[in-house]
Amino acid sequence: MKDSTQSDFTEKIIGNMKETPGPLLEILHQIQKEFGYVSPDLVPVIAESLNVSRAEVHGVISFYHYFRSAPPALHRVQICRAEACQAMGSRVLEDYAKASLGIDFHQITADGSITLEPVYCLGNCACPPSIRIDDKIYAGVSAEIFDLLVDELRIKPLKVVN
């Protein structure tokens, strides 16, 4: 079923960007910022408003690693896989993270709290290995530090306190 909130929002931001040249990436960024992903239902809405084909809109969404077509987990954990981090043990950290979370890259933990993604450089190459959790970057991440950081992201059952 089509989510009218999402399509209303989309039509509104496209209306606000009438004067913006080449606005598609900006539009997608705003949608993903608002809803966490770009629903495939919005593709025809965007295509019609910009007077381009649905294939073109889909092509752009699928080209970029950042854009998601399905709802995300509560938190995004990215592990840098690039050379500077490799030089300080990111391969080991990557294996550990997958095993510890029980998921592969691009998957979501069963409790819906974490999605694990690779990233190719966070620009923190002097303090490797680095990871990014949502918009915060952490340096020198060992397996122990990874566990500590990730544990805080887990959805925990509420405790009743008298």
Partner: peptide
Amino acid sequence: LGAGAYICGEETSMLESLEGK
């Protein structure tokens, strides 16, 4: 803002991306 694509550091690819493609 880019959207996570190394190739967009190549100047012509960057232009395409800036144009929303």
